[in-house]
């Protein structure tokens, strides 16, 4: 169980490094790439946390996070390309 906690802290530091790119990114597109990958890394945090705490509802949070981050990224990408949402 000890190794898993170290891996959990590494994963949290990795998501924090995505925040670096969100803050520093030269253009809007860089920030959106970083937001997309931040969502994927948070799902990894949820999976490791569900093992260390032995509670399965955290995986439900992970599934919901996948779907919400997908819809959010699609909306941001449509906004970038300057189109209406129903095209």
């Amino acid at each position: 169980m000890d190794i898993l906690e170290i891996l959990l802290y590494i994963q949290i530091v990795l998501s924090a490094s995505c925040l670096f790119r969100i803050i520093r990114g030269p253009s809007i597109a860089d920030r959106m790439v970083a937001i997309d990958i931040f969502g994927v890394l948070v799902v990894g945090i949820c999976a490791i946390l569900s093992i260390t705490t032995q509670r399965s509802f955290i995986l439900d949070i992970g599934i919901a996070w996948i779907i919400l981050s997908f819809i959010g990224t699609l909306t941001l990408a449509k906004y970038l390309s300057g189109k209406k949402l129903n095209e």
């Binding site: 997309d36 994927v40 990224t73 699609l74 941001l76 990408a77 970038l80």
Partner: peptide, 19 residues
């Protein structure tokens, strides 16, 4: 996660080019 991430990447790269 697999299909969501690939489709989101596809939309992002196209959006960034049109931007």
């Amino acid at each position: 996660l697999f299909f969501g991430a690939t489709a989101a990447a596809h939309a992002l790269v196209r959006g960034a080019y049109h931007f």
